[in-house]
Amino acid sequence: MSVLALQLSGFLASFLGFILQIVCTSSSNWKVSSMSESVITATWMFEGLWMNCAATSSGSIQCKWFSSVLGLEGYIQGTRALMILSLVVSLIGVITALFGMKCITIGSSDEQTKGKMSVTSGTLFIVGGICSLAAVSWYAAQVIQQFYSAIHGKSRYELGSGLYIGWAGSVLAILGGIFLCCSFKKSRKSSPRAYKYSAPSNEQKIYKPTSQADKAYV
């Protein structure tokens, strides 16, 4: 695969992953109330990082923002921080990738400089993908733990669509970052300069005395 094709594939995958990370962060469907033990299915609850909502079968939805940050559970606060960090790092990666693409003439035209910028952007995408992957997996683990440890009669929650969007975005960001890192090939080091060795001439130089002392010596 050519360098340009590898860069384009990596950038498109990383950018799509970045968009999915934004959708995941803003989604209010990280966990959904379970219907397995509920008799009344006309109303269900779903919750995200920023609000919890209630929906009815008639189509009405009511949402409420979390009123307190310190009152939230620790895993929600940690997930928020990781997702925001992932978005910031990935945004910097998008900007850096635009300057490092071979098909874009913005910035330096040196291939070595563009290659290093491409590697930098790929590394940023990988870091952002790992952050979002850790956040989504942490939240999912808490939902699963609470589902099996919930007291009888208490509402249980299952994994929502926002988590699957987050997983997909994380994988795409990491995969695109790997492509961008692999698109840079270091130039071969120039071989050390060869020193020319001039063999002594076979011809003997004839010594001619130039002064009286030299003539006397001869």
Rank of each mutant, 00 (worst) to 15 (best):
L72Y: 04
L72P: 02
L72W: 04
L72R: 04
E73D: 10
E73V: 14
G74M: 12
Y75D: 01
Y75P: 02
I76C: 09
I76T: 08
I76E: 06
I76N: 07
I76R: 09
Q77N: 10
G78M: 08
G78Q: 05
T79M: 05
T79F: 09
T79D: 05
R80G: 11
A81K: 10
A81F: 10
A81L: 11
L82Y: 09
L82H: 05
L82D: 09
M83R: 12
M83P: 09
I84H: 13
I84P: 06
I84F: 10
I84G: 14
L85C: 11
L85E: 11
L85H: 14
S86C: 14
S86M: 13
S86G: 13
S86E: 14
S86T: 09
S86A: 10
S86W: 09
L87I: 06
L87E: 08
V88P: 12
V88D: 09
V88G: 15
V88W: 15
V88N: 14
V88Q: 14
V88K: 11
V89C: 12
V89S: 10
V89E: 07
V89G: 13
V89Y: 09
S90G: 15
L91E: 15
L91V: 13
L91D: 15
L91I: 15
L91A: 15
I92M: 08
I92R: 04
I92V: 13
I92N: 07
I92F: 09
I92A: 06
I92H: 06
G93Y: 08
G93H: 04
G93P: 06
G93L: 11
G93K: 03
G93Q: 05
V94L: 02
V94N: 00
V94G: 02
T96V: 14
A97Y: 02
A97V: 03
A97C: 03
A97T: 03
L98K: 11
L98M: 05
L98H: 09
L98T: 07
F99K: 04
F99N: 02
F99M: 08
F99G: 03
G100Q: 05
G100T: 09
G100K: 07
G100F: 10
G100S: 11
M101H: 11
M101P: 06
K102N: 10
K102L: 08
C103G: 13
C103K: 13
C103E: 15
I104C: 13
I106L: 10
I106G: 10
I106W: 10
I106C: 13
G107L: 06
G107S: 11
G107C: 10
G107Q: 08
S108Q: 04
S108V: 07
S108N: 04
S109M: 06
S109I: 04
S109P: 04
D110F: 00
D110S: 01
D110I: 01
D110H: 00
D110V: 01
D110T: 01
D110G: 01
D110K: 01
E111C: 05
E111P: 02
Q112E: 02
Q112I: 03
Q112Y: 01
Q112C: 03
Q112V: 03
T113C: 00
T113Q: 00
T113F: 01
K114Q: 01
K114P: 00
K114V: 02
G115I: 00
K116T: 00
K116Y: 00
K116G: 00
K116A: 01
M117C: 03
M117I: 05
M117S: 03
M117T: 03
M117A: 03
S118P: 00
S118Q: 02
